[in-house]
Every structure is written in C-alpha cells, then in structure tokens.
C-alpha cells in the first residue's frame, strides 16, 4: 500500500500534474489576442510587436499542451495573455495620441486663421 501511494505521487510529479490546461485560460488568451488584433489593426511599433509575441506564445502553448507539458503550456498562455493585453493597451494609447495630435494640429490651424 505504501509503495502504491509513492508510485501515484511519483507519477503525478513526473507528468507535471498532467491535467489539461484549463479551458478558461485558453479562452482568456484567445479573447485578449482577438481584442488586441482589433485595436492594433495595421499599426506597427511596440503594439504590433507585443501582439506578434502573444500569437507566437499562444501557438507554442498549444503545442506544449498537445505534448502533455501542461504546466509549461499554462505559463506560456499566461505570457500570451499578458502580451496581448499590453498590445491592446499600447494600441489604444497610440490611437489616442494620434487623435490628440490631429486635434492639436486643428487647434493650431484655427488659431492661425483667427489671428490668435
């Protein structure tokens, strides 16, 4: 009996707690990537770089999950989601700053026309 318990524990440790990656985590990463893709669109720069990282990490995580590397897959999915969320935030920031620049330019033009 004692030997059997040790065997089960060893097995569990060796498979890295070989339960499947939680679907909620996969969904969370997918959702973050989709949302970031909408925001980043055809932008370049850091937002696009982070989004590319997120996609690569997501794909890698899926491969790891297939290979039974559940724990590693889970950590990589966490990285993918974090990168995707950062990509979305950077994209939103870039868009806001671009809009701000456009408004500032318009203000300057109007001020010139009004002689201010």
């Amino acid at each position: 009996m004692r030997h059997l318990s040790k065997l089960i524990l060893a097995c569990a440790l060796s498979t890295g707690c070989a339960t499947a990656v939680p679907q909620a985590q996969i969904d969370g990463a997918q959702k973050a990537i989709a949302s970031a893709s909408d925001t980043v669109g055809s932008m370049g720069g850091p937002a696009a770089d982070r989004l590319a990282d997120a996609k690569k990490e997501y794909d890698a995580a899926m491969e790891m999950a297939k290979a039974g590397k559940t724990d590693e897959a889970s950590r990589t999915l966490a990285k993918a989601e974090a990168d995707a969320k950062l990509a979305g935030a950077l994209g939103a920031e870039a868009k806001t700053k671009s809009d701000l620049q456009a408004v500032t330019d318009q203000i300057q033009t109007l001020k010139t026309q009004l002689g201010k």
Partner: peptide, 17 residues
C-alpha cells in the same frame, strides 16, 4: 522567469493604461 515576464508585462500594461 515566466512569472517574472508576466509581472513585467502587467506593470507595463498598467503604465500604458
């Protein structure tokens, strides 16, 4: 390292927001 990476990104995320 992975968790540190996520922590880094989360800090950057808060900063970007």
């Amino acid at each position: 390292r992975d968790k540190a990476y996520v922590a880094l990104r989360k800090a950057e995320y808060a900063d970007a927001l």
